[in-house]
Amino acid sequence: HPDDRAATMHQAARVTAGELQRHFRNRYIHRDGHSVDIQWSARWLPEYGVRIGVAHEVTELRRNERELEHRASHDILTGLPNRHHLYTELQYAIAHAAETGDGLAVLYLDLDGFKEVNDRGGHGTGDRVLREVGQRLQQGLRQGDLVARVGGDEFVAVLPGCRDSRAARIIADDLRARLGSPCTLPDGPFRPDASIGIAFFPRDGTDAETLLAHADRAMYMAKRRRQERLEKG
């Protein structure tokens, strides 16, 4: 495989340089065009001046490994990154923002009225709505942004390069508008909505945990203000 050629040559050079045995993997392009994963065991025999390599195809094994890796870092229901993956990516985004000064915003979203969905149609219906919400959030973000599911009906969006409240609010309002299209439930439509809290690096925190906590608090404040407005009529 072209992407593995340099690494393969490096491994071969290490064997030739005298390392007794090397185990490594690479990919080859099959003659019909698909990629094949190969596990190598290579050994240099200096007394004969030859390099011996034994290859085993491990395409299915590698496919299973990739699936397990994906499951470990993604939410099974929605396919979105999970909390663990979010923390990793947010730490990278913080480091990049600190180095470049490009700015960074974090949106914490909690669905409003989601209990009604489960009450009306059961958990299967709720799962369907969560999958739809996840897709709408992904479609509403910019290239390079990230959205993760971090709890039952809670999502977090990471917005690299977003440095001011106006830009973040525009994105948040657009996400709410996208969520507002009705989902069809067995007993009628349901319009998803969300309360959204926003935190900015470095103003509201310089590490992942602090930023998420600040955005979470801001989300609950937004939810409380909306409830108060509804109560006042």
Rank of each mutant, 00 (worst) to 15 (best):
D75A: 03
L77N: 07
L77F: 04
T78R: 03
L80D: 12
N82D: 15
R83P: 08
L86A: 06
L86M: 13
Y87A: 13
Y87T: 13
T88F: 04
E89H: 03
Q91M: 09
Y92L: 14
Y92F: 11
A93K: 03
A93M: 09
A93F: 13
A97D: 14
A98G: 15
T100L: 11
G103M: 12
L104G: 05
L104M: 09
A105D: 06
L107S: 11
L107M: 11
Y108S: 07
L109T: 10
L109Y: 11
L109M: 14
L109F: 10
D110M: 07
L111W: 09
D112V: 03
F114D: 09
N118T: 09
D119W: 04
H123C: 04
G124L: 14
G124Q: 10
D127N: 12
V133Q: 07
V133L: 07
G134Q: 09
L137H: 03
Q138P: 00
Q138S: 14
Q139I: 00
Q139V: 00
Q139K: 02
G140F: 07
L141N: 08
Q143V: 07
Q143Y: 02
D145C: 01
L146V: 13
A148P: 13
A148C: 15
R149L: 08
V150Q: 03
G151V: 05
G151A: 15
G152T: 04
G152I: 06
E154M: 02
P160L: 04
A168E: 04
A168M: 02
R169V: 03
I170H: 04
I171Y: 00
A172S: 15
D173Y: 01
D173S: 09
R176N: 15
A177H: 13
S181C: 03
